[in-house]
C-alpha cells in the first residue's frame, strides 16, 4: 500500500494516486492495482477512500439541491428552467398550483420566460430531465436582488463548513443570501451599494477558494469595506 501524492496536492487526469488496497471514491478509478485521478483537482483521502475535489466541473443536479434558474419556455403543463447544467429542468404545473395543466390564455403569466426562480430539485437521475418544485418556504419567483454566477465547484467553499462562511457573510452584511448549488447566488440587500459590496466579497471567495485562512481574510475585508462605506455616507 503506497500513496503517491499528499493530501491537498494538485493532481491531473491520469495521474497515479496510490497502489494497493485503497478504495477509489469521487473522480478516481482503479486499473489493476493502481488508482488514478480522472480530473484536475485537489487530492483528498479519508482512511483508505481516495477522492479528488475538482477545480472546475459542470453542475449535475441532485435531489434536494437548492437551485436558482431562469424560465426559458412555457409549455402545456409546466415550465422549462435553465439551471446552469447540461440538463434543462422541468417545473411542472402541479408543483406550482395543484392542477395538471396551465390555464389557457393568461395562464403562463404566473411565471414568464426570463423570470428567475428559486427552486428545489425533487427528482434527478441522469436518465431523465430533473424535476423542480417551488412548494416550500422561501421558494418561488425572485422579485428583487441581484444574481451572480460563480463556478459550481466553488459553492462548498462559499457555504463553508456547516455554513460558517455564508452565515458570517449574512451576519456582517445583514443581507439575505441564497446560494444555489448550481453556482448561482442571489444577493438581496437594502441598498444597491451593499449588494455591490457583497458581490465583490463573493468574487474574492471564488478567486481564492483554495487558499488557507480564507474566512479570516474575508471577515477582515468585509469589516473594512463596511466601515469605508459608512464613512463615505457620513462625509
Amino acid at each position: 500500500m503506497t500513496l503517491h501524492v499528499e493530501k491537498r496536492q494538485i493532481v491531473t487526469p491520469g495521474e497515479l494516486l496510490a497502489q494497493g488496497d485503497y478504495y477509489p471514491d469521487l473522480n478516481t478509478f482503479r486499473e489493476g492495482d493502481s488508482i488514478y485521478s480522472t480530473i484536475m483537482g485537489i487530492f483528498d483521502h479519508r482512511g483508505n477512500r481516495l477522492s479528488v475535489v475538482p477545480l472546475k466541473h459542470c453542475y449535475i443536479p441532485f435531489v434536494d439541491d437548492l437551485v436558482i434558474g431562469k424560465i426559458v419556455d412555457v409549455g402545456m403543463s409546466g415550465w422549462m428552467v435553465d439551471i446552469n447544467s447540461p440538463y434543462p429542468a422541468l417545473l411542472p404545473a402541479t408543483e406550482v398550483m395543484g392542477r395538471q395543466h396551465l390555464p389557457r390564455g393568461d395562464g403562463g403569466r404566473i411565471l414568464e420566460v426570463g423570470d428567475l426562480v428559486k427552486a428545489k430539485v425533487i427528482a434527478a437521475d441522469r436518465t431523465r430531465d430533473p424535476l423542480l418544485t417551488i412548494r416550500d418556504r422561501g421558494l418561488g419567483k425572485i422579485s428583487r436582488g441581484r444574481v451572480l454566477k460563480i463556478s459550481p465547484s466553488k459553492i462548498p467553499r462559499l457555504i463553508g463548513k456547516d455554513g460558517s462562511m455564508i452565515n458570517m457573510l449574512k451576519k456582517e452584511s445583514s443581507c439575505s443570501l441564497n446560494v444555489g448549488q448550481n453556482g448561482v447566488v442571489l444577493v438581496t440587500c437594502e441598498t444597491p451599494e451593499k449588494e455591490e459590496l457583497v458581490i465583490d466579497v463573493i468574487k474574492v471567495i471564488e478567486r481564492e477558494a483554495h487558499t488557507q485562512g480564507l474566512a479570516d481574510r474575508v471577515l477582515e475585508l468585509m469589516k473594512s469595506r463596511i466601515r469605508g462605506e459608512g464613512n463615505a455616507e457620513g462625509t
Binding site: 487526469p13 478509478f29 480522472t38 480530473i39 472546475k56
Partner: peptide, 11 residues
C-alpha cells in the same frame, strides 16, 4: 478536455 473539467482516464 481536462481544462473543461471532464472526467478522463488519462491524457
Amino acid at each position: 478536455l481536462a481544462d473543461a473539467g471532464i472526467s478522463m482516464r488519462e491524457l
